[in-house]
């Protein structure tokens, strides 16, 4: 919330004009555990993607490629629903936090 709009810039009725702009909010700060994916065993079934509350699985060409650690709140649903149990929740430390999406999901 560093840059608040001036009143002249606010739309009548407070209409939001930037679709998906909460993207800038770093909800990954809430996390105490981080999902680590074993890509050797991942079958790219997309169950984690469809059951993620925070849209935090990055997918390209129907393949799971990374976890968006800027937004992942570390709820652990993915590790529970994974049919091949290739996602582990491991304790997250502040030092590991990254504002950019991580390549391997390990933070």
């Amino acid at each position: 919330m560093s840059e608040q709009p001036l009143w002249k810039q606010i739309q009548p009725g407070g209409i939001g004009v930037n679709p998906g702009s909460t993207d800038r909010v770093q909800t990954g700060d809430w996390r105490t555990e981080v999902p680590v994916i074993d890509f050797e065993r991942c079958t790219h079934c997309m169950i984690c993607w469809v059951d993620c509350p925070d849209t935090s699985f990055e997918v390209a060409d129907s393949k799971l490629v990374a976890v968006d650690l800027k937004h992942c709140k570390g709820c652990g649903i993915c590790a529970q629903v994974c049919p091949v149990k290739c996602i582990d929740m491991v304790p997250d430390s502040a030092a590991d936090r990254d504002t950019e999406p991580s390549e391997n999901g390990a933070g």
């Binding site: 909460t22 770093q26 925070d54 849209t55 709140k73």
Partner: peptide
């Protein structure tokens, strides 16, 4: 539906 929303961790609504 984007990310960065304030629903609790593990919320079923956003799912």
């Amino acid at each position: 539906f984007g990310n960065g929303h304030g629903l609790c961790a593990g919320c079923a609504e956003s799912v």
